[in-house]
Computed example of a mutant assay.
Amino acid sequence: MAGYLTTHVLDTARGCPAAGLKIMLYKLSGNSHRKLLEVVTNDDGRTNAPILPAESFETGSYELVFCAGDYLRATGQAGDDPLFLDEIPIRFGMSDAEAHYHVPLLLSPFSYGTYRGS
């Protein structure tokens, strides 16, 4: 089985999935960032398909950029400009060509967390 990448965004301040949050995926190589795709989370805070499916999966360094500011504004949680959190980049490596990598984001207006999920 080939590897693949998924994500999930939970709004911990409201206690629900973060629907409608835009996410960009970049492949990193040295000082180069190559944008692979842009997606929006569904009602469950997930993407409708793996963000990097098995047929496109490659090991290497990547960055997910979560557009938290737009989401926080849309849900009335933003507060005054400039926002404390706006775009949240998470850089990570994937070294196992057969693994499922899951990079979730736990989000509130003033904090976030992530981990390697399953």
Rank of each mutant, 00 (worst) to 15 (best):
F66G: 06
E55F: 10
G60M: 10
T114V: 04
L28S: 04
G45T: 04
S61T: 07
L36G: 09
H33W: 15
D96P: 05
A97W: 09
A18W: 00
N48T: 14
M94A: 10
D70F: 07
D80M: 13
M1S: 12
Q77R: 09
V9D: 07
M24S: 13
H102L: 11
S32T: 10
Y4D: 10
T6E: 05
Y71A: 03
Y112C: 10
V65K: 04
R46S: 12
T12Y: 07
T59G: 11
S32I: 14
I23Y: 02
G15R: 01
E63F: 11
T6G: 05
P109F: 00
F92S: 00
L83T: 09
S29D: 13
V39Q: 01
C16I: 12
D80Y: 12
P17G: 13
G45H: 07
T7I: 05
F110T: 14
D81V: 11
F57Q: 04
P82G: 07
N31V: 11
T7S: 08
T41F: 06
F92D: 02
A97F: 12
I23Q: 02
L36S: 06
V103H: 00
L72C: 05
P50H: 03
S56G: 08
L37G: 13
L106K: 14
T41K: 08
L83Y: 01
G117I: 09
D11G: 09
C67N: 11
D43Y: 09
V40W: 07
Y101R: 02
A99L: 09
D86Q: 11
Y26K: 03
Y71H: 09
P82W: 15
S61D: 14
L21W: 04
N48Y: 10
E55Y: 03
V9S: 02
L85S: 09
L85H: 04
A2T: 14
L10S: 11
F84E: 10
E63Q: 15
L36H: 07
E87A: 13
M1R: 13
P53L: 04
S95Q: 10
P17D: 04
S111E: 10
G30N: 04
G69K: 06
L21F: 02
M24N: 15
E63W: 14
L107C: 06
L64T: 00
S32R: 14
Y4G: 08
L21E: 01
